[in-house]
Amino acid sequence: MPANARSVPSIRPPNAAPASSPLSAPTRRELLKSTGLLTGTLALSSALAGLAPSRAWALDLGTFSSHQGAVILAFSRHLYPHPTLDDAVYALVVKDLDSQAASDHAVQQIVLSGVRQLDQVGGGDWLKRPPALQLVDVESMQGTPFFVTVRSTAVVALYNNDMAFAHFGYGGQDGHLGYLHKGFNDLTWLPEPPDAASGPIPPN
């Protein structure tokens, strides 16, 4: 597995608690405005369908253009490739970087110049480059401030939200009141440990 060459601090607490519905249904105003906007449609089979307000989703960008957002999204997909994970979840990486860039000029410069560099490599539009070559580009950017910023944001933003929890099968907040009566010991494909190794289940 390719590891980040310069091995940077990977612990960066997220900017916000996971939002249960981080994306909104596109409004007419958003569809008409000129600044950045990412849109998509959840696959019919997606486990996330129940979590989003509608199958069509939109993410309003404050700093990046639609194209820049799409490049970051594609880059994130190469970093953490989950074939059946919806773009709506990868869009949260863009959202997190977009809000970091809004308040931190250095981050903005790092991200924008990285996107510019990718577009140059791609002859003006990195998104048109074949995916296999895109992956080579991602690999060759390891250790650069752009790579480090996107990766360290992505590893948190991508997996710290209810849509990811549903996709990967993590209970998240569902566990708040406990699994005592919700299957904490429901595994049946191995033998039950003897009573002496385990303990009594409280009645209530």
């Binding site: 597995m1 390719p2 590891a3 980040n4 091995s7 940077v8 990977s10 612990i11 996971p18 970093l79 953490y80 490739p81 989950h82 990766r151 590893v155 948190v156 991508l158 997996y159 710290n160 990811a164 929890f165 990967f168 993590y170 998240g172």
Partner: peptide, 19 residues
């Protein structure tokens, strides 16, 4: 949980094997 698992499993890692 998923958030800590992804941050601690292989710090700094990315790519298909990690995914």
């Amino acid at each position: 949980g998923l958030p800590f698992y992804t941050s601690f499993l292989k710090p700094g890692a990315w790519g298909a094997d990690f995914a």
